[in-house]
Design a protein around this nucleic acid. Structure first.
Lengths: 148, 148
DNA sequence: ACCATCTCGTCAGAGGATCTGACCATCGTC
DNA sequence: GACGATGGTCAGATCCTCTGACGAGATGGT
């Protein structure tokens, strides 16, 4: 990962700063809202739960962790009441991880903070540059996200 | 951190994909080059060592970890021969973490991979869009990197 | 139906990464 | 010189992540 404090930083590293900043803002806001028992790792898993529920294996794939790790994190989220596991009606081996009520409350807070942060960034960059940034990142995702 | 598999992803999450892709590419290339005893956490610290050496506290600040964590990672890097610690001539309390020969070799590989990846991304986006992306990310860094 | 094979998820165990708290040596300043 | 601030370490705990092994259910060919 080496990259000096030099002038021209690589694009990957430049991408890191906004991501880290958002994650820190989110975590702080969640703690402030009383959800102080959540970790970033749990959040990264929870963030990938689709409306109807998502299989553990799918969560693991998208988050780029092993299914053991994902299972461990879902255990914690379940114990804390953020998610629940229900049988998958289409496959008796599988179970769907769904948001519980408490989980939905967290998502609501997260959505608000995300919108806030994005508004700040847009204000800093200007509408047009922000839109271009989004477009470029979305196109970049085509070649950098194996699970798009 | 929650963010659904929904349509319009937030900018922070969009930033994550390129960063993760680059880090994975780097790690794979380093392993392929025989540097198979390095971890991403070590890399994130090593990446911030300036040419003349950097203090532990500075490394910790920039990587956003505690100085204990940074010290632990530098211990490993030192044991593996990637870096060395030398006394700071300007302050008897402090020591400078410097790249050792083996560390320089890693940096060389990393530089090459970074350039490769950036060339691929530029090819995908087009010269102009890539330049705009870089410019936007650099401006965004002004408000997202506390240690710029 | 049946069997080989794959997929979904779990259990067990180990190694890393990261934090908090306590502590010492040195620096800078009044 | 005395005192608060800074650089770094030690100790201990917690969380995250992985590898390996495994059982239960699905799938496809015969």
């Amino acid at each position: 990962m080496p990259d000096p404090a030099g002038e021209r930083q690589n694009l990957g590293l430049l991408c890191f700063y906004p991501h880290r900043a958002l994650e820190a803002r989110l975590l702080a806001a969640l703690v402030a809202a009383g959800f102080d028992d959540i970790t970033t790792a749990q959040g990264r898993i929870a963030a990938r739960i689709a409306p109807g529920g998502t299989r553990l294996t799918a969560l693991a794939e998208q988050a780029l962790v092993t299914k053991q790790t994902a299972g461990h994190l879902v255990d914690q989220l379940e114990r804390a009441g953020y998610v629940r596991r229900v049988p998958d009606p289409t496959d008796a081996r599988a179970r769907l991880v769904q948001m519980a009520e408490r989980g939905e409350a967290v998502v609501a807070v997260a959505r608000r903070v995300e919108a806030e942060v994005e508004a700040e960034w847009t204000a800093h960059l200007g509408e047009e540059a922000a839109a271009q940034l989004r477009a470029a990142l979305e196109r970049l995702r085509e070649v950098t996200d194996p699970y798009r």
